[in-house]
Simulated assay, not measured.
Amino acid sequence: MKKGHLTIKDIAKDLNVSPSTVSRALKDNPDISLETRKLVQEYAKKNKYKPNALALSLRNQHTNIIGVIVPELANHFFSAVLSGMETIAEDKGYQVIICQSSEDYHKEIRNVQTLIKARVCGALISQAKTTTQYEHFEELLDNDIPVIFFDRICIGIDADKVVVDDYSGTFTAVEYMIKSGCKRIAFFSAPLHMEISKNRKNGYLDAIRKYHLPVEENLIRIADNKPLGYERAMEILQEPNRPDGFMAMNDYTASGILLAAKKLKLRIPDDISICGFSNSNISQDTDPMLTTMDQHPEKVGEEAMKLLLEKVENPEDTTRKNKIIKTSLIVRQTTRVLPDN
């Protein structure tokens, strides 16, 4: 045990648990097991732990500022999400600080420090694709800052979440392509350590299995932007038994696939069907226009902000809430028309 003023981090180190677990155990949070709460509370009492009065006074100063961390501001989905968030925040009298991680783990850590220093009263986060460790998110909770994850969620942190129905959206899109005549559909994914990628892959796989088509690992590639979509599609479309359909992680990847197919003088959608995900502006700027899944990003932003403000204004409510936003298939010109029944 450390000599001098005992901190939450000291207790966490001595008991081999996370600081956020100690923080919540000291508040008798029911999300922490009774055994752990008792262990922490007895240890704190025995070692005369006292909360830092200055830190508590700072935390209790209600700033009416919400912090938001997004991977990319230029991305249509995230800009639309932010629009939804700001609409709700402004209506409720809150201001929003926006940080961009640029898909970089280390910059994301700096973003978190910025929000803590700004004494935000809550944080909305969509994690960077390079993030695989979550201590910086724990630090927000340690500072009594409620956190809501949206879209790209972190399952390693005990926090509320707002997500798109990625599984059902992908299943619906792949099923549509199968019903329209596709027999070999490739899936271009984001890195598979991310929950969003796992859910979309599972939706793809279950649609393939439902219609008794073979699961071919060679048709599953990591490509989540336009250059990679083009590069991977050029590779796979020149193989002897090329796919006749593509399910893309997003519209940018789908536009890269479309460019590759046109470069190889393939007919779309007769030879190749392509479906994106997001219903971003680019989906209507391509020729032909992309079939895609609408994620309703403004709704994601609105629901995430509402959920966070509930936490901010009712700090004693420890109930966990997760919300799922349904998707909609937008059929345009890069997929075949369903045959008449």
Rank of each mutant, 00 (worst) to 15 (best):
Leu73Phe: 10
Leu219Tyr: 13
Ile153Glu: 07
Asp287Gly: 06
Ile257Phe: 05
Ala80Val: 01
Lys323Phe: 09
Ile98Phe: 11
Glu138Tyr: 12
Glu239Ile: 10
Arg242Asp: 07
Val120Gln: 09
His5Glu: 14
Asp14Arg: 13
Val81Tyr: 10
Leu15Gly: 10
Val174Gln: 04
Glu86Ile: 02
Lys9Val: 10
Ile109Ser: 11
His76Tyr: 14
Lys306Phe: 07
Gly245Val: 03
Ile196Thr: 15
Glu216Gln: 12
Lys226Cys: 13
Phe171Gln: 02
Asp285Val: 06
Asn29Ala: 12
Gly169Pro: 00
Val215Asp: 11
Pro146Arg: 05
Glu138His: 11
Phe171Arg: 11
Pro51Ala: 06
Gln127Ala: 14
Glu108Tyr: 00
Pro146Ser: 01
Ile257Val: 15
Lys183Tyr: 06
Leu290Thr: 05
Tyr230Gln: 12
Asn64Gly: 04
Val337Leu: 12
Ala80Gln: 14
Ser280Leu: 10
Ser283Leu: 03
Ile155Pro: 07
Ile145His: 02
Ser23Lys: 09
Asp224Cys: 13
Tyr49Glu: 03
Arg59Gln: 15
Leu140Ile: 00
Thr131His: 04
Tyr176Trp: 00
Ala254Asn: 04
Pro30His: 04
Met177Ser: 06
Ala53Gly: 00
Ala207Val: 06
Lys226Ala: 13
Pro71Gly: 01
Gln133Tyr: 12
Val312Ala: 08
Asn322Ile: 09
Ala128Asn: 08
Glu175Ala: 08
Lys3Trp: 01
Ile98Glu: 10
Ile157Pro: 00
Cys121Pro: 05
Glu298Tyr: 06
Phe137Ala: 07
Met249Asn: 15
Asn16Ile: 07
Ser278Trp: 02
Leu329Asn: 03
Arg110Gln: 15
Arg59Trp: 05
Asp340Asn: 13
Val96Thr: 15
Gly4Glu: 06
Ala254Lys: 07
Asp340Trp: 08
Arg119Pro: 06
Glu217Gly: 10
Ile69Gly: 02
Ser101Thr: 01
Ala233Thr: 09
Asn314Pro: 03
Ser168Arg: 11
Met177Asn: 06
Ser83Lys: 14
Phe246Lys: 07
Ser280Trp: 09
Asp14Leu: 09
Gly84Asp: 05
Pro30Gly: 08
Gly276Arg: 01
His212Pro: 03
Val17Ala: 10
Ile330Thr: 03
Gln113Phe: 10
Arg184Tyr: 04
Ala74Lys: 14
Thr7Glu: 06
Met234Gly: 07
Leu6Glu: 06
